[in-house]
Computed example of a mutant assay.
Amino acid sequence: MAKVEKIANDVAAAQGCVLYDIEFVGLGKGRTLRLFIDREEEGAISIEDCTNVSRGLSEILDADEEMIPGGEYNLEVSTPGLDRHLKKPWHFKKAIGKKVYIKTTKSLESMGVEDKKWKSAKTVEEVLESADEQGVRFVVKDVEIKIPYAMIDRAKLVFEYTKGQKK
């Protein structure tokens, strides 16, 4: 799968996109290779971007049937969406200043949080203050919450509808 990911990364880059995530799901003829592409900087991914990445990757994968063992599969290329999952440090860095939902593997107390409101919590849904190579940081009413990536079970961006947005 690492070889497919590298090729997908190269194909996305050739189209001016970045490979956000890749997953291979399902069994038998129902297997699906999913690619999620994004822009490195702000900007929207178009249907044309998805089509171009799909075509480019299909040509390479179809030329080498050994690349994906087991034969048939479906290829899907899309954006990560408004409520995108956050997995890699650069995903979190791109989400700084936005509301993020994080579910941790242990209570926040095990990460040094002493505030009684937060110490038994295993979820945080707040604006992300910062992110680096070790983890993320929130500041909620003067309470600092630092969560290392190793303690994050799941994380996603929280889409917030604000008045005045186009429908």
Score class of each variant (00 low, 15 high):
Thr105Asp: 11
Gly97Met: 04
Ile152Lys: 06
Val143Ile: 03
Ile7Leu: 12
Glu40Lys: 09
Ile22Val: 15
Gln134Met: 12
Leu82Arg: 00
Asn74Val: 05
Lys117Arg: 11
Met1Gln: 08
Val53Pro: 11
Lys166Ser: 14
Leu86Ile: 08
Val158Ser: 11
Glu114Gln: 15
Asn9Pro: 02
Leu27Ile: 15
Thr105Pro: 02
Val4Tyr: 08
Glu59Cys: 13
Val11Thr: 01
Pro69Trp: 09
Gly71His: 06
Asp142Glu: 10
Ser107Arg: 12
Glu5Arg: 12
Arg154Val: 12
Thr51Val: 15
His91Asn: 06
Glu41Asn: 14
Glu65Tyr: 11
Gly16Trp: 06
Ser46Val: 04
Asp21Cys: 11
Lys106Val: 14
Ile102Asn: 10
Glu48Gln: 14
Asp64Ser: 08
Lys87Thr: 11
Val140Gly: 00
Gly71Ser: 04
His85Thr: 15
Arg55Leu: 09
Trp90Cys: 03
Ile37Met: 08
Leu82Lys: 01
Ala155Glu: 07
Gly71Phe: 00
Gly16Ser: 09
Glu66Leu: 14
Ala44Met: 13
Asp10Asn: 12
Asp83Gly: 14
Ala2Arg: 13
Tyr73Asn: 01
Ile37Trp: 02
Gly164Ala: 02
Glu42His: 11
Leu128Ala: 05
Asn74Gly: 04
Ala8Glu: 09
Leu33Asn: 00
Lys99Ile: 08
Ile68Arg: 06
Ala2Cys: 10
Lys117Gln: 13
Lys117His: 12
Asp62Ser: 05
Met151Tyr: 12
Glu126Thr: 02
Ile60Phe: 00
Gly135Trp: 02
Lys166Asn: 13
Gly164Arg: 02
Ala44Gln: 15
Ile152Asp: 05
Glu133His: 10
Asp115Met: 05
Leu27Glu: 15
Leu33Phe: 00
Val140Ile: 10
Arg84Leu: 01
Phe24Pro: 04
Glu133Ile: 13
Thr105Val: 14
Ile45Asp: 07
Ala12Gly: 08
Lys156Glu: 06
Gly81His: 07
Val136Ala: 04
Val25Met: 03
Arg34Tyr: 04
Arg31Trp: 01
Lys146Asn: 11
Ala63Val: 01
Gly112Tyr: 05
Cys50Ala: 11
Thr79Gly: 04
Lys3Ala: 12
Ala121Ile: 03
Glu125Thr: 11
Val139Gly: 00
Tyr149Val: 02
Gly112Phe: 06
Pro69Gly: 15
Thr123Asn: 10
Ala14Pro: 11
Phe138Asn: 01
Leu27Trp: 10
Arg154His: 14
Ser120Pro: 13
Val127Pro: 05
Val11Gln: 06
Ala12Val: 03
Val4Cys: 06
Ile145Arg: 04
Ile45Phe: 10
Val4Pro: 06
Glu66His: 15
Glu41Ala: 15
Lys93Val: 03
Thr32Asp: 03
Lys87Val: 15
Ile145Gly: 02
Lys94Trp: 03
Val143Glu: 04
